[in-house]
């Protein structure tokens, strides 16, 4: 049973990791906790649902469609709700603006779709593979593989391309980067686009895996993903992946071996412990305060 639960945890954790990546990328560059990120994930899930059920597209095409849709959604949100505030006020004002966007988006979806949970259509026949005592479903394998591919892709994008280089420069020092001729606004826009696309991928996969989407699914997922990003060390991309996987596994093992009624308390309790022992998160860099 332990290995089965471990696989359950890794699957859940990989969806957390995909959402956490968006948080961490945005944070790394403009130090904003983008609270609307959970809602982008929700919109991604619904966009995927629309493409699969109404247009009858293949699930992988729908996945890409939802990612593209959320890219634009993320850029639009940044343009409307964050850019006008940037540089004019404290980060907290931007945080409130993000909360406003989050309330707006989830209510909007509730008005469009109703507050009921909607079933995600079955996209394929699910095979179960028996490996010794372990039952592994084909869906779990697909989710793990797709998330791994997306994360590797992201790593390549950031390490090998020009825009990735620009992003790294901006995250080190936004001002200095723009003095070096980098169009910081554009880099921020791209960061939102990439983060949102990853969240959308997470949304579609969660929809496929659990067969259910609903307008308020983003709130708790967003919170957990933020926790994952902080656990891994916010601003660090490998940190978000490790944080997501750790949180997912901890949560599932907490239910399996401790108590399911204290599930969230266990996850957050461990998070607090880790942060007290290692204040910069698992992969975060220790920053010395300067005057």
């Amino acid at each position: 049973m332990f290995i089965e639960q471990l696989v359950n945890g890794l699957t859940l954790g990989s969806t957390y990791a995909l959402i956490a990546l968006g948080y961490t990328m945005v944070y790394g560059i403009i130090q904003l906790i983008n609270f609307a990120h959970g809602e982008i994930y929700m919109f991604g899930a619904f966009a995927g649902l629309l493409l699969v059920s109404v247009f009858g597209l293949n699930i992988f095409v729908a996945l890409i469609g939802a990612m593209v849709f959320c890219m634009f959604l993320g850029m639009l949100i940044e343009r409307i709700a964050y850019r006008p505030i940037r540089g004019k006020s404290s980060r907290l004002s931007a945080l409130i603006s993000a909360i406003g966007v989050s309330i707006f988006l989830s209510t909007l979806m509730a008005l469009i779709r109703g507050t009921n949970t909607t079933r995600y259509p079955e996209i394929m026949k699910i095979h179960t593979y028996h490996l010794g005592s372990l039952d592994l479903s084909s869906l779990q394998i697909i989710i793990l593989v797709v998330s791994a591919l997306l994360m590797v892709g992201l790593q390549l994008l950031i390490q090998k391309t020009r825009i990735g280089k620009a992003m790294r420069a901006c995250s080190q020092d936004l001002e200095a980067a723009s003095l070096m001729g980098i169009n910081a606004n554009r880099v921020i826009s791209y960061t939102f686009a990439i983060g949102s696309a990853l969240a959308a991928a997470g949304g579609v996969m969660v929809g496929v895996y659990y067969n259910a989407v609903w307008p308020y699914m983003g709130t708790m997922a967003g919170l957990k993903a933020f926790a994952a990003a902080v656990l891994g060390g916010i601003g660090s991309i490998p940190g978000a992946m490790i944080g997501g996987l750790t949180l997912g596994v901890l949560e599932i093992l907490g239910v399996a071996y401790l108590s399911s009624s204290y599930k969230d308390a266990i996850a957050f309790g461990i998070l607090i412990l880790v942060l007290i022992l290692r204040p910069q998160g698992i992969m975060g860099k220790k920053i010395t305060k300067k005057v």
Binding site: Y27, F226, A227, V230, F268, I272, L275
Partner: peptide, 23 residues
């Protein structure tokens, strides 16, 4: 924990604390 933590790490601790209390 504010002895060691600040900013968004602290925010996360307070969120976690409130969730634990709720549970």
């Amino acid at each position: 924990p504010t002895l060691r933590l600040e900013g968004d790490y602290l925010a996360m601790i307070t969120i976690g604390f409130a969730e634990i209390i709720r549970v």
